[in-house]
Nucleic acid binder design. Structure first.
Lengths: 336, 336
DNA sequence: CTGAAAGCGCTTACAG
DNA sequence: CTGAAAGCGCTTACAG
């Protein structure tokens, strides 16, 4: 149905087509295509005419093979449906695009077991990889890193033999405790994220540090998760805890909890006070607008690209880059 | 600093390394790597040993050049910071991944003028492309499509010579008018999106159709835009219009308007009633929760991949696939 | 069942 | 300034 009209030329023109059309060698064609100066003007003109006439476009793949470089990087995230990773991806992509690089995305969510294999596969199509794998086993990750350099890993603590960019969740959560305690709350509840999540360690440290600063404040912990549904389901646990303020693992959890609180007609702020973490877009529009820690995810993504770019240009690997979250006071937590 | 330990073998092993290590031809190595049956078990075993010993991994790029196929597709969107496109991308990626394809993203937002060039460039690294370019000139787009098939275009009306998936914005907006009119509103205001946006035509049709059904309802229009800031800024225009209910171009606009209304202490619903379009995540958590039309963006993305997959497998191009938005009643609009 | 050879479409020393 | 040739790392008819 698309074939009724005889197509002018089925096959795409190659460098050889151009070369013979212009009566030159393909080395010469290559030179004018790549703008090398050492080509006589008359010849160059002939070549350009041939290029236009044939609609020639160099094959990116062939170039990649020949040069050993794709100008593409991979970004591997655990869940592309999650606004957090979407935004980070955006940050990487925008920064990489400015330097003429493209981004290949890979979502390991479908099969966490194959996360490592996925990273390797994605890396093989590209020049470098940014890895966001909060739940991968540390030893597995370390073994992997040897094989996929240049790489940058996001939000993994501990000895990572790769460039690293991280968000200081420890000080962020401590800041939140300070804020709530300063408001007068004396019984806090932290809703933990998925067990085994690497950011959990930072939470522990931050909470411990804050606890030292506020000896008369009780900080309890409960297992919860990282999704809205987890927050929604945590409502009963929260109410039974007797806490006046809850620190949700992230905004999604906080939002789920808020939603349930409204259904149950539990006033927030008032009867219950809630803070989140991340400052996703929805946090700003929640009812009540959610007090949370802003995490500059776009910048995190941008920094990840920057670290990769350095390595791709043979500069030495940069030290870990850390971003501090910042408190965004809105309406979901007030004095008790 | 990473070079203190002499690396065991700098260079990646190639098929030739394996061939000579195993004492066979590289054709044979290729056969066992690709699981072709016609290899004797003893030879195959030798080859596998060599592969493991050398840590050989076939080059994806070389394979791509040889086969003329990358198993990668491109997705071009106007703005990767926009949750709408993020979600659509997620839908494409998930569906494509299931069929063993990877996704390369490209964001034309940085330079709309180079959108066409970007699409061509992205397409050249891949086997096919899904195009989301609501503002591209129809003639330009038509010319482009000839060069980049297989392609699927999302949300473009009119004669498109490519597979097409679209959302029925016309009936969606009409549905919203029906809902508000049914509630008793008689003065409606529609905040238009960016002029030249291809979905604007559908809005026009839908609004016209609805107007016929409700001759006693006034439907005014005002230029606005598609961003939260645009919605925020539209507040004054809205208040001056005398309308009791406003249909925002999308949720972002509605959310911006809501934010400003809260600042100005204009009660929604009550003094003003607002509906959005898209049903982004934030809509659900807005205060008040936003009544809107849900658009199944993940499915749209999935369908886009499906259409591409058919073409990649030499099936005939499918008819346009259209998704109907569905009304999600929340709290931002009630009887006047 | 296995190998020699040509091919995929480029780039780049090396000569001249 | 220009070209012949080798190379990037694979796949696949074609012989045997």
């Amino acid at each position: 149905m698309a074939e009724l009209v005889p197509s002018p030329s089925r096959r795409r023109a190659t460098i050889d087509d151009v070369a013979s059309a212009a009566g030159v060698s393909r080395a010469t064609v290559s030179r004018v295509v790549n703008g090398l100066p050492s080509v006589g003007p008359a010849i160059a003109a002939k070549v350009r005419t041939a290029i236009d006439g044939l609609g020639y476009e160099p094959s990116t793949i062939a170039r990649s093979l020949s040069l050993g470089v794709t100008r593409t990087i991979a970004v591997v995230v655990p869940d592309l449906a999650n606004p957090t990773f979407q935004q980070m991806l955006h940050g990487v992509n925008r920064a990489a695009a400015r330097d003429g690089y493209r981004v290949l995305v890979a979502d390991s969510g479908e099969s966490p077991a194959e996360e490592l294999a996925l990273i390797i596969e994605a890396r093989k199509r590209t020049d470098a990889v940014v890895i966001c794998a909060p739940r991968a086993d540390p030893a597995d990750l370390a073994a992997l890193l040897e094989r996929v350099q240049p790489a940058v890993v996001i939000n993994r603590e501990g000895a990572i033999d790769a460039a690293s960019v991280l968000v200081d969740y420890a000080s962020g959560i401590a800041c939140l405790v300070d804020y709530l305690a300063g408001l007068g709350h004396r019984r806090l509840l932290h809703l933990d994220g998925p067990s085994g999540s690497s950011s959990q360690g930072a939470r522990d440290r931050g909470l411990t540090a804050a606890q030292r600063r506020w000896p008369d404040v009780t900080i309890e912990r409960r297992a919860c998760g990282s999704s809205m549904d987890a927050g929604y389901a945590a409502f009963d646990v929260v109410m039974r805890s007797g806490a006046t303020a809850v620190l949700a693992f992230n905004d999604l959890v906080a939002l789920g909890l808020l939603g349930r609180a409204r259904e149950e007609r539990v006033l927030v702020p008032g009867r219950l006070h809630v803070v989140g973490f991340d400052d996703i877009q929805a946090a700003r529009f929640a009812s009540p607008p959610l007090t949370t820690m802003h995490v500059p995810l776009t910048d995190v993504g941008g920094a990840a690209w920057g670290a990769l770019y350095d390595q791709l240009n043979n500069r030495s690997r940069s030290d870990p880059i850390v971003f501090a979250p910042s408190l965004v006071v809105r309406d979901s937590a007030t004095a008790p």
